[in-house]
């Protein structure tokens, strides 16, 4: 089958790959490029486990065609820690015991990051809204909500 070249920036690194037309970004990242941090929980845009950030927007990589991502700036949870130091959101998820099986965690963290990038001091309602497209079956959500609120507080303290 015909392959399409696609180039984008992934977690700050120039990345190029040939993909079959119709390949989702999720499959391209996982199977071709080797970034398995986005998870395939449904492949139909209903669970949020595959969430990534494309040009600052939260996107479902299972519903995004890889070939539409040329020139894009893509971020995944695998690229969030800088220099081996965890991002405040990652730290907060650890401290709040907000992970159990961990399968939804990378997508949750992506959704939370887009929220905090735009709304550094979110209300609980803001957090609930931001996470509402991400399914978790283990935690009952409360620890995740608390982790995001804690990360926001940590950020604002650092800024102050």
């Amino acid at each position: 089958m015909a392959k399409v070249p696609v180039e984008f920036t992934l977690n700050g690194l120039e990345t190029a790959e040939f993909v079959e037309s119709g390949t989702t970004l999720l499959n391209a990242l996982r199977d071709k490029i080797g970034d398995t941090s986005p998870k395939g929980g449904c492949h139909q845009g209903t669970c949020g486990a595959c969430s990534v950030i494309i040009d600052g927007e939260l996107r479902l990589s299972c519903l995004t065609l890889a070939e539409t991502c040329g020139g894009a700036d893509i971020k995944t949870t695998a690229g969030l820690a800088e220099g081996g130091v965890l991002h405040p959101l990652q730290r907060a998820f650890l401290d709040a015991f907000a992970t159990q099986c961990g399968f939804c965690t990378p997508g949750m963290i992506m959704a939370a990051k887009v929220l905090l990038d735009r709304t550094p001091n979110p209300s609980r309602e803001d957090v609930v809204e931001a996470l509402s497209g991400n399914i978790c079956r283990c935690t009952g959500y409360e620890p995740i909500i608390q982790a995001v609120l804690t990360a926001a507080r940590a950020n604002s303290q650092n800024a102050a």
């Binding site: 669970c47 509402s132 009952g140 409360e142 995740i144």
Partner: peptide, 17 residues
């Protein structure tokens, strides 16, 4: 057959626990 049709409480539907 999916998370839209199979209902579960989301983060906005939580009881105070």
């Amino acid at each position: 057959t999916d998370f839209n049709q199979y209902l579960m409480p989301g983060p906005g539907d939580l009881a105070q626990t």
